[in-house]
């Protein structure tokens, strides 16, 4: 079963990369995207609607602000939209609460990014290498 269509997935990827931006280490999507999709299909089934809401809002807002889809924006533009949805400077174009879905997405992205790889994210324990957490036994 496809949880998100192609466009939605690209938006979700751009959103997660805004929450944890790629640098010499992976961004949120590459490192935690798989975790999030697994989770939405299992433990976090109930959260599907908030992710649907998130990608919908991001599409509407980025088109209104920049006449582009969210995933087409540059890093600063993506950051600005999330920041302003979070602090209320940009109101949600549909019913719902952006601070709520942002909070959830922030947590889930971090869980995938920093938890053990068996949960579906953090391939090759890259985030652990990044911060200096080594498993010795």
């Amino acid at each position: 079963m496809m949880l998100f269509n192609e466009q939605e997935l690209r938006t979700l990827a751009a959103f997660m990369d805004t929450l944890i931006p790629p640098d010499e280490y992976p961004g949120g999507w590459d490192d935690a995207g798989n975790y999030l999709l697994n989770q939405i299909a299992s433990n976090l089934k109930d959260e599907m609607p908030i992710y649907k809401e998130a990608v919908k809002v991001l599409k509407i807002v980025s088109n209104a602000e920049y006449q582009m889809d969210y995933y087409e924006l540059n890093e600063q533009q993506r950051y600005r939209i999330i920041k302003e949805l979070e602090n209320g400077t940009i109101a949600s174009p549909i019913s719902g609460s952006p601070p709520a879905w942002i909070t959830h997405a922030v947590r889930h992205t971090a869980e995938g990014y920093y938890a053990n790889p068996e949960n579906g994210g953090n391939p090759e324990t890259l985030s652990w290498k990044m911060i200096g957490f080594e498993v010795t036994a």
Binding site: L19, I20, P21, Y79, T109
Partner: peptide, 9 residues
């Protein structure tokens, strides 16, 4: 979230 969060970690 964002760059500052990652840098802090």
């Amino acid at each position: 979230w964002g760059k500052e969060n990652k840098e802090w970690m």
